[in-house]
Computed example of a mutant assay.
Amino acid sequence: MREPQRLGDWLDRARENANGWKKALFIVLGIFVVLNLFITPHHPHFTGEGLPGFWEIFALAATIVMVVVLKKIVYPILARPEDDNGRS
């Protein structure tokens, strides 16, 4: 019988295969963009929704905004020492 694997072993393997996962992700996203050129909504709710690749571009922009907000605003708040109450 096989012993249960540890989480650390799984994370090490995932880290080793990161480039493969990244390539797979980009391939899937590329397929979605190409499909969006041919499959469009019949009744878009607003003008942008009818443009090919709109949702992919929207998702990319939203992700970039979230990363910037987290790195510039949220991380400094979370990275403070526990005994720091904000007063100088």
Rank of each mutant, 00 (worst) to 15 (best):
E3A: 11
E3P: 05
E3Y: 07
P4M: 09
Q5W: 07
R6E: 09
R6V: 05
L7M: 13
L7F: 14
L7Q: 12
G8D: 11
G8C: 08
D9R: 11
W10E: 11
W10S: 12
W10D: 09
L11W: 10
L11C: 11
L11G: 07
D12V: 09
A14Q: 08
R15K: 11
R15F: 05
N17F: 05
N17S: 13
A18C: 07
A18G: 02
N19V: 12
N19Y: 13
N19R: 15
N19Q: 15
W21I: 06
W21R: 10
W21M: 13
K22D: 13
K23V: 11
K23P: 00
L25N: 10
L25C: 11
F26M: 15
F26Y: 15
I27S: 10
I27Q: 09
I27H: 06
V28M: 11
L29M: 15
I31K: 09
F32G: 03
V33W: 07
V33R: 04
L35A: 09
L35V: 09
L35F: 12
L35C: 09
N36S: 11
N36F: 03
L37G: 13
L37I: 15
F38D: 05
F38T: 08
I39R: 08
T40Y: 13
P41D: 06
P41C: 04
P41F: 02
H42W: 14
P44T: 05
P44Q: 06
P44L: 06
P44F: 08
F46D: 06
F46N: 08
T47Q: 14
G48L: 03
G48P: 01
E49A: 06
E49P: 00
E49N: 02
G50A: 09
L51V: 15
P52R: 02
P52L: 05
P52V: 03
F54H: 08
F54G: 01
E56S: 14
E56G: 11
F58H: 13
F58T: 09
A59F: 12
A61E: 10
A61M: 14
A62I: 05
T63H: 09
T63S: 13
T63A: 12
T63R: 08
I64T: 10
V65C: 08
V65F: 06
V67A: 07
V67Q: 05
V67D: 04
V67K: 01
V68P: 00
V68F: 01
V69R: 02
V69F: 07
L70M: 15
L70Y: 15
L70G: 10
L70W: 15
K71G: 05
I73S: 04
V74G: 01
V74H: 03
V74I: 13
Y75M: 09
Y75R: 08
P76Q: 05
P76S: 03
A79G: 01
A79D: 03
R80C: 00
R80N: 00
R80S: 00
P81N: 15
E82W: 09
D83V: 08
D83G: 03
D84F: 00
D84E: 00
N85M: 02
G86V: 03
R87W: 02
R87E: 03
R87K: 07
